[in-house]
């Protein structure tokens, strides 16, 4: 059992357990904290897959910026920690669970079946600088410069839209 297997189960198991914490905790603040932990574990998985820039972006943007927004709104609204959910299962929830199980089975079979076993391993050697700042930045500003600029416009529209939606009166 190599180091990669150990780290895969450490990060992957941690991500799944903390995502379970998001789903099962009654207090939304606990859900938010579990989600931050899950983002950190996923950043570890990204770093294992030599996506170093995306691992850093995951921590800085997701865990650092988006989750701060979530926690800020949770603290601002302050609607108490108990959620008025009925513990027993109603038919809608049973159907949801069945659909989730079917989706999981379909995705697992697709994940194992789309290539044959011999070709499923990753290439042993990577090109130098793969997934680093220089490579991704070069791709973003040459081949993908139009989507990059569109993302900038989208974020601008998002800022203005958030202010307009949350503002009380004009």
């Amino acid at each position: 059992m190599g180091a990669e297997t150990i780290f895969f189960f450490l990060f992957g198991g941690g991500a799944i357990l903390s995502t379970l914490g998001v789903l099962l905790s009654r207090n939304p603040i606990n859900s938010a904290i579990s989600l931050v932990v899950s983002f950190f574990f996923l950043a570890g998985i990204y770093a294992m897959l030599s996506a170093h820039l995306n691992a850093i972006m995951q921590i800085m943007v997701y865990a650092g910026a988006i989750m701060v927004l979530f926690v800020f709104v949770l603290m601002l609204l302050n609607f108490g920690d108990e959620e008025h959910e009925k513990p027993r299962l109603n038919p809608t929830q049973i159907i949801s669970l069945l659909v989730g199980a079917a989706l999981l089975i379909a995705m697992f079979s697709a994940a194992t079946a789309f290539v044959d076993g011999s070709r499923q391993v990753f290439h042993p050697s990577m090109p130098p600088g793969f997934g680093g700042v220089e490579a991704i930045g070069h791709a973003l500003l040459t081949s993908y410069v139009l989507p990059f600029e569109m993302a900038a416009v989208l974020l601008l529209v998002g800022i203005v839209g958030a202010v307009v939606v949350a503002k009380r009166r004009f």
Partner: peptide, 11 residues
Amino acid sequence: LSLPLSWYLML
């Protein structure tokens, strides 16, 4: 790297 791609896809 020795883990198959499908493990990551299953996660």
